[in-house]
């Protein structure tokens, strides 16, 4: 017997982090260490700033990995900062991270986690 209805998660933020190919692992590990439930990696190609560097562009990988992570909006800064530090995004050419508010999310929420959320 399945209970009718749907549970929306609100106050969610989508963090998107773009790094050089092969560095998605660092980002994901940092995010998971901060309690992020999961992540999705896309393989992508970056254009723009790299081309404007002239010959220096050889030092920067055009192949990128884009990591998407959903986090609680209240804690987005904490996760974002942690990723920023872990992936060393303060170095030129290392990549970027941005946050987008998400209106709602619906998925299967394990009952265990749901109950814990209600209790606290």
């Amino acid at each position: 017997m399945k209970p009718e209805g749907i549970t929306y998660l609100t106050d969610v933020t989508l963090l998107t982090c773009i790094v050089a190919a092969g560095r998605a692992d660092v980002v994901i590990r940092a995010a998971q260490g901060m309690g992020a439930p999961g992540a999705i990696v896309y393989h992508a190609q970056g254009l723009g700033p790299r081309e404007r560097l002239g010959l220096l562009s050889i030092a920067i990988e055009a192949e990128k990995e884009v990591v998407s992570i959903l986090v609680a909006a209240d804690y987005q800064d904490a996760v974002l900062e942690t990723i920023y530090r872990a992936a060393e995004l303060d170095v030129p050419g290392a990549g970027m991270i941005y946050a987008i508010p998400v209106e709602k999310v619906a998925t299967y929420i394990p009952r265990d986690i749901m109950e814990k959320g209600q209790a606290s």
Partner: peptide, 9 residues
């Protein structure tokens, strides 16, 4: 119903 995500993490 709606649940803020912060309650779950």
């Amino acid at each position: 119903r709606e649940v803020p995500m912060r309650e779950l993490v």
